[in-house]
Structures are given as structure tokens and as C-alpha cells.
């Protein structure tokens, strides 16, 4: 298993708030192989962003707290590092891009200077050398007239261009892993298609691993190799993209798929919403987090947390329906095998 670049085990994150302690991430484990894209999918508040922020050392402490777990990048532990140590890998070994490029960039610095700054700080390059590389990076992310654009400020860029600049910046130190937190959510479909295409190309040419955080299953289908579905602070199903889409094994994954329209000629299917809302993470349920909304819920689900059942090679689902004593549920295969 030397090909695993990033290995996260049993990560738990809490936040102190006025209302009590929020258990935002409740035991998350996953690994990312070299040159692969892992998509972490889930709805708002499921803990997907907190998970990657914890890995990056971006959780403000206090009020945040990593109560357990490990995250190893090429075998080196990243949790619990001092800010100085964290800067050795942050932006160097792991690059990150955010949902809103407009607020993630400094409005008073030129785009070129912002990219060059990474190289000056982490690599000790001269101002001149780093400025030249900044232009090359902008060129690599397909920004036309890169040399001219490097001298411009963020407000002179469109949303798509800003996201390209963010990618250029994150590539500056040739990271092993690129974390993209909802990189296309704020963009139009046409621009989204371009950014996703760029990410796929960079993965091929640079051999980077990508962690893509998103709520959009269509984006996942386009770029992911592996998928982890998160719900209420836990990964409830993980597997290859095909396993997740065609052999979904967790009722929540199926529910998500049935709640989305697909475009097949001559197929009229009614959207099936998931009723109810996610559980309160101030008081996480003792059993399965999806219990209250699950159409297949059984008695055991309320009080006992399901462990990850192995469905197939590298395909796991945390659902009691996969226990040998559980009844057969036809609906499990309703949405698969389309």
C-alpha cells in the first residue's frame, strides 16, 4: 500500500459553541492513492469541509478541537503540528482551493504577486524568478495573455478566471495533494465544465491526487475515481465512483440519487425528496445518523451505530441492512443498474 498518499484514520473534530459542543466530524477514515481523485460528497453541515480543514490545520483552536485521529501524508503525521511545522507542508505538499475565489484572494495584491509569494515564502526564490514562474503557472491553467494578467488585480478577473488563478497558486510548489472545496459551486455550468476539465488534465499531467469536496453528484460523476459519502459527521458509504452510482448500498446515497433529476429521453421519473432534516450534532444520535429519515429503518438502527459492512472489494457501507440477520430490501437495488 505504498501508493497511498494521504491516509486519514478515525478523525474526530468538535467545536465549543454557546449552545454546547458540536460534534462536527465523528470518526472519519479514508485514504487517497497517488494520482487519484477522491470526492467527498454530502449536504451542508455534514462535516465535509471541517474534515479537510482539520487535515490542513485550518481549524481555529479554540473553539475547535481535534479529539482523536491521525492524518498521514506520505507517512508523516500532520495533526497536532505547531503552526511553524504545519507551514512546511501547507501550501507545499498540499494545495487547497476554496469555493469563493473572490474572498480567498487578497484584493490589494496583483494576481502575479500572490502566486509568487508562495514561491518566495516556501521555496526561497527571488522576486524576479518567482514572478516568471507565476506567469508560467497562469499559462498552465490556461489564462490567456498570462503575462499581462499577472499584473492585474482580482477585481479585474471574472469568477472562472479567479478560480484558475487559485489553482495556479495552489500548483506553485508542485503539491502531492490538491484539496478543492466546492471549487465550482459559485460558477456557471459552462465555466464549471472548463474548471473540471482543467483539474482532470492537471491530474493526468502532474500526477496529483485530488480531494474534491462537493454536494453535486453530477460533478462527482464527471471527475471522481473514488467517492466517500458523508452524513452527520461520518462517512456512511465509500467505494469506486461506479460502485457508488450503480451499486449504491446505503439508503442515504440512494435517496440523494432519487432526489436529483436525470436526463434520459423518454424517461419520466418523479423526484423523491428525502423527508425530514439531518440530526442535531449537539446531541448526535446513539445509533445510525440517518435513522430518522431512513425508509428502511429497523429497531437496531436507533440504538446501535452500524459499522462499515464490506459490500465488495473497496466498497463499504455503514448500514445494518447489510448485516446477515437483516431482511432483504428490494428497494436497495431500485436505483442501481440503470
Amino acid at each position: 500500500m505504498s501508493d497511498i498518499v494521504l491516509d486519514v484514520k478515525n478523525l474526530r473534530v468538535e467545536f465549543d459553541t454557546y449552545g454546547g459542543i458540536v460534534k462536527a466530524v465523528r470518526g472519519v477514515s479514508f485514504s487517497v492513492p497517488r494520482g487519484q481523485t477522491l470526492a467527498i460528497v454530502g449536504e451542508s453541515g455534514c462535516g465535509k469541509s471541517v474534515t479537510v480543514q482539520a487535515i490542513m490545520g485550518l481549524i481555529p483552536m479554540p473553539p475547535g478541537r481535534i479529539t482523536s485521529g491521525s492524518a498521514k501524508l506520505n507517512g508523516q503525521e500532520m495533526l497536532g503540528l505547531s503552526p511553524k511545522e504545519a507551514n512546511q507542508f501547507r501550501g507545499v505538499e498540499i494545495g487547497m482551493i476554496f469555493q469563493d475565489p473572490m474572498t480567498s484572494l487578497n484584493p490589494t495584491m496583483t494576481i502575479g504577486d500572490q502566486i509568487a509569494e508562495t514561491l518566495i515564502v516556501h521555496r526561497g526564490y527571488t522576486k524576479k524568478a518567482s514572478a516568471k514562474i507565476a506567469v508560467d503557472l497562469l499559462d498552465k491553467t490556461k489564462i490567456p495573455e498570462a503575462a499581462k494578467r499577472a499584473r492585474q488585480y482580482p477585481f479585474e478577473f471574472s469568477g472562472g478566471m479567479l478560480q484558475r488563478s487559485m489553482i495556479a497558486m495552489s500548483l506553485a510548489c508542485n503539491p502531492t495533494v490538491l484539496i478543492a472545496d466546492e471549487p465550482t459551486t459559485a460558477l456557471d455550468v459552462t465555466i464549471q465544465a472548463e474548471i473540471l476539465e482543467l483539474m482532470l488534465e492537471l491530474k493526468r499531467t502532474e500526477g496529483m491526487s485530488i480531494i474534491l469536496i462537493t454536494h453535486d453528484l453530477a460533478v462527482v460523476a464527471r471527475v471522481a475515481d473514488d467517492v466517500a459519502v458523508m452524513y452527520a459527521g461520518q462517512i456512511i458509504e465509500s467505494g469506486s465512483v461506479d460502485q457508488i452510482f450503480y451499486e449504491s448500498a446505503h439508503p442515504y446515497t440512494m435517496g440523494l440519487k432519487e432526489a436529483m433529476p436525470t436526463n434520459k429521453p423518454n424517461e419520466e421519473r418523479k423526484l423523491m425528496p428525502i423527508s425530514g432534516s439531518p440530526p442535531d450534532l449537539f446531541h448526535p444520535p446513539a445509533g445510525c445518523g440517518y435513522f430518522a429519515r431512513c425508509p428502511h429503518a429497523m429497531d437496531i438502527c436507533e440504538s446501535n451505530q452500524p459499522s462499515g459492512f464490506r459490500i465488495a472489494a473497496d466498497h463499504y457501507a455503514s448500514c445494518w441492512l447489510h448485516h446477515e440477520l437483516a431482511p432483504e430490501v428490494d428497494a436497495l437495488h431500485l436505483v442501481g443498474d440503470q
Binding site: 471574472s158 472562472g160 478566471m161 456557471d188 455550468v189 459552462t190 465555466i191 464549471q192 465544465a193 472548463e194 473540471l196 476539465e197 482532470l200 453535486d216 453528484l217 453530477a218 460533478v219 462527482v220 460523476a221 464527471r222 471522481a224 465512483v241 461506479d242 452510482f245 450503480y246 440519487k257 436529483m260 436525470t262 436526463n263 440503470q338
Partner: peptide, 27 residues
């Protein structure tokens, strides 16, 4: 045509088989 071509579908097999020719330029 370009708008609909850029619209991703929640279907990995379909996505892999699709020509990836995103629209050029911006509005």
C-alpha cells in the same frame, strides 16, 4: 448546444463517454 454539453449528468459511465469540449471564453 454548448450549454447542454457543459451540463454534467449524475452518471459516471455517460460522463466518461462524453466528448469534453467546454465552451470557449466567457460571457
Amino acid at each position: 448546444q454548448l450549454l447542454i454539453e457543459s451540463n454534467p449528468e449524475p452518471d459516471p459511465v455517460l460522463e466518461r463517454s462524453r466528448p469534453h469540449t467546454p465552451i470557449k471564453g466567457e460571457i
